[in-house]
Design a protein around this nucleic acid. Structure first.
Length: 626
RNA sequence: GGGCCUGUAGCUCAGCUUGGAUAGAGUGCUGGACUUCUAAUCCAGUGGUCAAGGGAUCGAAGCCCUUCGGGCCCGCCA
């Protein structure tokens, strides 16, 4: 029994009352009451019928209240009409709380059957393998990973992909640096290879193009070699790419993020997928050869209110959008899969990470989906819109390809200043090419050392290893939470100093509530008895906490339907807030009787278990101590 | 010029999809609570012309229109 069932019961009761009274069927809403004095659940049916019946909402609500009262469902104790016109229900907590607590003991608590085990592909991360991840990339990674976790909980069969653009211009840049720019391909002692490539080689070589024509020429030469994929340069490029990728993945794994398969662009190029897709598009009339005008000789795609987009240049080569189309089609399983697969590695969680190959000695696998979500920031919206349109033409189902966009992460003026940039009081877009960014590893390290000293202060008896573990859990929780709590279409202005504040609506606040709950359970040293006396939980704090615990599955469903990870972070925060209020006002271990102690311990356990599950959806650990 | 996003408390943001009760958090500031299950906490106070104007509605922060401010995108680059 969760609140969902309470809502369903009320919905049914109201409908029956309407039928009995001969009212028209209206699509009324059952929602949680906006404040405590209104009871627990509110219904707006009175407003909706008011016009039809030419009566005041209050009068209708009152008639309905009387009718509902005759046969009130088990989990309700009262129903009444409010002056405003709402029909308000009060829950029967003596029955509701024990049911909620028992439901929450289920290992799968919160699971909803939205996906019905259908295949869902999520692509995220997809950072060019020529640099280290920065906080902007982290937003992408955390959104993608959290969505994957939520959809898994909503009973989708989820596969996560990371696209590796190993033959693009950005990789060419660092190869030029190593081969013709005089940079060693071994980083200085103590520096990660991805940081070295991004901080030094990429930025410096970009600067040098301006004055060194020769280097600029070598760039297009290298790019061509990479695309052809047979020369020594291509081989060297492949080595470098994979070394950077490995370092990037270490950062992702540190964040608790795992993948199912790595897709290499070079292999998509060599797989002939493009020509198959191109033929299909021609035959379906999706693309046309332009005879005249500025795009003469190009294959273009027409967009509704926007300018035509060139897919294939007059020299026969494909543009950037065009390169994404075969991959999108592959993800949806529209074309026959040309790839073979082999192990890349086994990740910390035990999950195998696969990679595509073109070697027929490797195995066949399936990483395609009935539905595909691509996480890319909204600067790519225009291009993603084109791809979405083409995929819906291919699939003849409008929603099979979804671009999940989000606004970018910018740097605050103060943080920009730490990079020696004076932005005149404005925040600034990050840029790998210009060296304007704060790396993910750096943020995690700074956070970790900050949380380490804090944890040490609070737990002086703990050994170094435990403290390191705790501080890492909190650092990651803080970063992940900060990336998810805000709506996707709002810009995050990253400020390093602010990111170190761990109070209020933050990851550590939520994690702290878990640690507190666990300590109560530990200290009690008791075996919990869930079969008796749970109705003794009758303070407002206990009711509120139980009610929120009972909402978990509703929140999961909401988050999954709307692809909105923020809903789960809000839920965690509410759980934690309610628990902290309970913690401050209701004593557990020193309660009046053994029975009350037991009942409260059961509630604490229920809270702890539910919060841990919710935190897991956010990829956050639930620390035992803080 | 066109397209997408955005504007709510000093600051950072919920609420807008699906209109309804006194618009909520955090942070800041002021004050209070640790010999007590860990104060990364709690409690109280402070703080709002929901950008502006208009429209439809019994009723608008929310829906429609207009205007203004901010961001991003509009290459035969990737």
């Amino acid at each position: 029994m969760t609140l969902r069932l309470l809502f369903d019961q009320i919905r049914l009761d109201v409908k029956q009352a309407c039928d009995t009274l001969g009212y028209a069927q209206v699509d009324f809403d059952i929602s949680e009451a906006s404040r405590q004095e209104f009871g627990d659940v509110s219904c707006n049916v009175g407003f909706l019928l008011a016009k039809m019946l030419k009566k005041k909402p209050f009068d209708i609500a009152q008639t309905l209240a009387q009718e509902c009262k005759k046969n009130l469902g088990t989990y309700m104790s009262d129903v009444s009409a409010h002056n405003s016109g709402y029909l308000n229900f009060t829950a029967n907590y003596k029955l509701l709380i024990p049911q909620v607590i028992k439901s929450s003991l289920d290992t799968n608590y919160g699971q909803v059957d939205l996906g019905k085990n259908s295949k869902m592909v999520i692509e995220h991360t997809s950072v060019n393998p020529n640099k280290a991840l920065h906080v902007g990339h982290v937003r992408n990674i955390i959104i993608g990973d959290t969505i994957a976790r939520i959809l898994d909980k909503a009973s989708y069969d989820v596969r996560v992909l990371n696209y590796v653009d190993d033959s693009g211009l950005q990789v060419a840049d660092i190869i030029v640096g190593f081969k013709y720019g005089g940079y060693s391909d071994t980083p200085p002692e103590g520096q990660k290879f991805d940081h070295y490539c991004g901080d030094v080689v990429y930025v410096k070589i970009t600067e040098r193009y301006e004055t060194d024509k020769h280097l600029a020429e070598m760039r297009s030469h290298v790019l061509k070699e990479l695309e052809e994929g047979t020369s020594d340069i291509a081989k060297f490029g492949d080595d470098v790419t994979r070394r950077v990728l490995e370092e990037q993945l270490k950062t992702c794994w540190r964040l608790g993020v795992t993948y199912d398969c790595l897709n290499f662009e070079s292999q998509i190029i060599h797989s002939q997928l493009w020509s198959l897709v191109f033929e299909k598009m021609k035959s379906m009339g999706i693309t046309n050869l332009e005879k005249e005008g500025k795009n003469a000789g190009c294959w273009v795609i027409r967009a509704d209110a926007e300018e035509d987009k060139v897919l294939v240049r007059s020299n026969g080569t494909a543009t950037y959008v065009a390169k994404d189309i075969p991959y999108a089609a592959w993800k949806l399983g529209i074309l026959e899969d040309p790839f073979y697969y082999k192990h890349y590695t086994i990740q910390k969680t035990g999950k195998v990470l696969w990679q595509t190959t073109l070697d027929s000695r490797d195995v066949k696998m399936h990483f395609t989906g009935d539905k595909v979500i691509t996480v890319i920031d909204s600067r790519q919206s225009r291009l993603q819109k084109i791809i979405t349109k083409i995929m819906s033409d291919f699939k003849s189902k409008p929603d099979s390809y979804v671009h999940l966009g989000y606004e970018s992460v910018t740097l605050s003026p103060a943080t920009a200043k730490m990079l020696d940039l004076d932005t005149g009081g404005k925040s600034i877009q990050m840029s790998g090419r210009k060296g304007i960014y704060v790396s993910a590893d750096y943020v995690l390290d700074v956070l970790s050392s900050r949380t380490f000293s804090e944890a040490k202060k609070r737990n002086p008896e703990l050994d170094e290893m435990s403290l390191v573990k705790i501080s890492e859990q909190i650092a990651i929780g803080a970063l992940r939470y900060s990336m998810i709590k805000q709506d996707l279409d709002k810009i995050i202005t990253f400020d390093l100093t602010e990111s170190l504040s761990l109070e209020g609506d933050t990851g550590p606040y939520v994690q702290y509530a878990h640690a507190r709950a666990l300590r109560i359970l530990e200290k009690s040293g008791k075996t919990l008895n869930f079969d008796t006396n749970l109705a003794l939980l009758d303070t407002a704090y206990e009711k509120d906490l139980a009610k929120i615990i009972g909402k978990f599955d509703l929140q999961v469903e909401d988050a999954a339907k709307n692809l909105s990870p923020k809903i789960i972070s809000k839920y965690c925060y509410h759980l934690a807030t309610s628990f902290n209020a309970f913690y401050e006002h209701v004593k557990v271990l020193t309660a009046d009787s053994e029975d009350v102690v037991n009942a409260r311990l059961c509630l604490v356990y229920s809270f702890k278990a539910t919060l841990a599950k919710a935190l897991h959806l956010l990829g956050m650990d639930a620390p035992e101590r803080m």
